[in-house]
């Protein structure tokens, strides 16, 4: 698939290049923001990256995937820029938001002496989301709340969740980009997603409380 795309890019297929720019620029911008301090700087970094990609396309040897190669160029450009902005903080030590403990309120589970220890209590049980999150009646409100909840996540969780779930990077790509271990990546993803699910659950509970879902 990479070979085919690369052949088209080298052959001057403008549509192929446009698809690439449209598909990867949001994720590139997101990663650039790890290094530079403003959205405007991030845009410049991404443009410079694409210019470098255009210039070096014929020299790309395919030792890594095209995507990895592009992100590596971005990293080099962004690092240089980040240094210039005196903001080149190593990501994994910059935000000490390490946390432990359960991601779901322990009060929602039965105690150790119960007949079903660790099972959901009647009141704590997850209720079906009606209508489903994709339904037009709720999607816009849920998406808005999700955007807010994302912004409130601890920085590392937010970065991992956005790269994985908003921008569609793979676990391996996120680990490489952020220089974190697979286990660390999973923990950050888990904690971030858990908070976001809880937020959506709250939205549904509020709707229920307001009696909007009696049908």
């Amino acid at each position: 698939m990479d070979d085919d795309l690369l052949a088209r890019l080298r052959a001057g297929d403008r549509t192929a290049f446009a698809d690439l720019v449209d598909g990867w620029s949001p994720a590139l911008l997101r990663v650039a923001r790890l290094y530079v301090s403003t959205p405007a700087s991030a845009e410049e970094v991404v443009q410079e990256t694409w210019l470098a990609v255009i210039g070096q396309l014929d020299r790309f040897e395919g030792r890594s995937s095209l995507k990895t190669w592009v992100f590596r160029i971005l990293e080099n450009v962004a690092r240089g820029r980040g240094r210039a902005e005196a903001r080149a903080v190593p990501w994994s030590s910059a935000f000490p938001d390490r946390e432990d403990g359960p991601t779901v309120d322990p009060a929602r589970f039965r105690g150790p002496d119960d007949r079903w220890p660790g099972g959901w209590t009647v009141a704590g049980r997850p209720q079906a989301w009606v209508p489903p999150a994709e339904d037009a009646a709720v999607a816009a409100e849920l998406r808005r709340q999700l955007g807010n909840a994302l912004a409130e996540l601890p920085a590392r969780q937010r970065t991992v969740v956005e790269l994985r779930d908003v921008h569609g990077l793979s676990a391996e790509e996120v680990c490489e980009q952020l220089r974190i271990s697979p286990a660390n990546q999973r923990i950050l993803l888990h904690r971030g997603r858990a908070r976001l699910r809880t937020r959506l659950e709250d939205v549904y509970r509020d709707r229920e409380g307001r009696g909007e879902e009696r049908a």
């Binding site: 449209d22 620029s25 949001p26 911008l29 999607a139 999700l146 779930d165 908003v166 569609g168 976001l196």
Partner: peptide
């Protein structure tokens, strides 16, 4: 739903 959250682009 996260996959449908709008993300800034160029």
């Amino acid at each position: 739903l996260l996959g449908t959250v709008p993300a800034p682009t160029l």
